[in-house]
């Protein structure tokens, strides 16, 4: 049996990739299952999905804690999350990145494959949706499946949610990725702090979960505590404000869904990149074109 954990962001199609991989493995005579972590994550938030493949019927229904492979759809996640957490000895990371494996720092030396899935998907599909190209890289790097099965799996699963022609284009992206995948070993220079979580006993937990603002070992909880959730990491495009052009009309400040444009006195605006998700409303609404969206 082998187990795969996919890391992506809400809307990037990690779940569909996991499903297409399961279908591909099934087409080769295996038993396979794929499932998301059932959360309520919004578009842009980090998410995970899983695939499990075996020669016989799979009975285990738990989440996957020690995967054989991790697949990362968005290389920015590598900086946020310890994606090798729980990765089995001898396991492998397959990462969407234009970099070479040895230029990627996963905090732990592991066998790593990279593919510029974003570039391929922009070429083939016209959008940076990488969930098909990354599967081509998976097939190449692991040697577990034939690329033709991956292509069929993609067409099978993707055409349930989109036009068949688009599904076939996705299969083509996988085939291109298959040929361009580089396998090597990543570097291990940084360390990841273990994410802290507030896990009170039932007695420590406020009765009925009625929670006032409180400080816990894992930070603030209760009213207003989301302020510690730095959503800036979701961003692909970044707004740059040209102060010369700004006339302080405050439309950007008003419209920002994140409330991350700060008013400094009556004369200046400042974008708080800790929270900016890069939606681009500010740039779109600025009457003086003082805000430009640039790729991170």
């Amino acid at each position: 049996m082998y187990e795969v954990r996919f890391h992506g962001r809400g809307g990037q199609g990690a779940r569909m990739a996991a499903e297409a991989l399961a279908d591909a493995a099934f087409l080769e005579g295996n038993y396979a299952m794929a499932f998301p972590f059932f959360g309520a994550e919004r578009r842009g938030a980090p998410v995970v999905a899983f695939t499990r493949v075996d020669k016989q019927k799979i009975r285990i229904r738990t989440q996957i804690y020690e995967p054989d492979y991790v697949v990362v759809l968005d290389d920015k996640l590598v900086d946020l999350i310890n994606i090798t957490e729980g990765l089995k000895k001898g396991g492998m990371a397959i990462i969407n990145s234009a970099k070479k494996p040895e230029d990627i720092d996963l905090g732990k030396k592991v066998s790593t494959a990279t593919i510029d899935a974003t570039g391929i998907s922009l070429d083939v599909l016209g959008v940076p949706i990488t969930n098909s190209a990354i599967l081509g890289a998976f097939a190449k790097a692991t040697g577990l499946l034939d690329i033709d099965s991956i292509k069929k799996g993609i067409v099978d699963m993707f055409s349930m949610r989109m036009d068949k022609k688009l599904a076939e284009k996705n299969a083509r992206a996988a085939a291109i990725a298959y040929d361009k995948t580089i396998v090597g070993t990543c570097k291990a220079q940084r360390t990841f702090e273990k994410r802290k979580m507030w896990l009170p006993t039932y007695k420590e937990m406020p009765l009925g979960l009625a929670t006032p603002p409180m400080k816990t070992e894992a930070g603030l909880v209760g009213p207003g505590s989301f302020i510690e959730n730095k959503t800036g990491s979701w961003r692909t495009f970044k707004p740059i404000l040209d102060h010369e052009k700004c006339i302080m009309c405050l439309f950007c400040w008003f419209y920002c869904p994140e409330g991350c444009i700060e008013r400094v006195g009556n004369t200046t605006l400042k974008i708080n990149y800790d929270y900016c998700k890069g939606c681009g409303i500010c740039a779109n609404e600025c009457p003086k074109n003082a805000i430009e969206m640039v790729r991170e």
């Binding site: 959360g39 309520a40 979580m197 896990l199 009170p200 006993t201 039932y202 937990m205 009925g208 979960l209 009625a210 929670t211 006032p212 603002p213 209760g222 009213p223 207003g224």
Partner: peptide, 16 residues
Amino acid sequence: PMVLGSFTPPEYIQEA
């Protein structure tokens, strides 16, 4: 101010 009845993940429901 207090948060009452908010959307709650599995980490807390069993204790509740």
